[in-house]
Amino acid sequence: MEEDKRKELEEMAKKIRVDIVEMLCESGSGHPGGSLSLADIFSYLYFSGIMNIDPKNPNKKDRDRIVLSKGHACPVWYAALAEKGYFDKSHLKTLRKYGSMLQGHPDMNKTPGVDMTTGSLGQGLSCAVGMALGAKLDKLGCRIFAIVGDGECDEGQIWEAAMSAFHYKLDNLIAILDRNSLQIDGYTKDIMNSEPMINKWKSFGWEVIEINGHNLDEIESSIEKALNIKNKPVCIVANTIKGKGVSFMEGECGWHGKAPSEEEKEKAIRDCMCKA
């Protein structure tokens, strides 16, 4: 990746992180950890030019789709959509409030740019399978990105979806696994050991690419590679740090579903602004 492009995407990831902290502080609840772990990936998806999307025409038929299967991480999505111009940034302050277009979990009928309603874990990847089938039927040429959590992989439905994506040779479906190794009650290895994660996806017939989910070069090369793989779906296993960018949240499972206080906010924003 060119230096300028990397800098631009790094800056955008910082902005997204600051947006996440600010909106969660304003709402008083929400999920910072699993949102922050995805900031670099969302910066890349929305601002590298890799996706065929148009914020002025969010429903255009041949657009690439994102399904946030781990729907609780929607603050990262809302931040990216606002920064991209899908809606005014002032809406971010309304997160989780009554009447807001930004619901506690993604709502496709309320938020421009949200392609699928999710929130009950395990369902989004199946929805993405349906979208990928539909895209192939109409030869739309669009790609479906499904963002899956590692804790979410406890859900049996993820593996039903994985089996069917392989069966139907959905090479237009890319799952990005946010492997931050934490779930609400603790480390995934202690709560429900999902290892060997990589071999699981491989054994379900998927192409697997393992990356550092905070390294933009690796994000780019994995997605570029994934887009060229034929006849099977791809799972990019992105090793991430939950709470990435905010020193006191990093790797702390206590920050799964808790908003920062006003004091913590100041410190968190200072952290986000520092070099990643």
Partner: peptide, 17 residues
């Protein structure tokens, strides 16, 4: 796999099917 089928049906419907 009924759960998968129903969610996939939802995905297909968002594509105009």
């Amino acid at each position: 796999a009924e759960s998968n089928m129903i969610s996939a049906a939802a995905g297909l419907s968002t594509m105009g099917k």
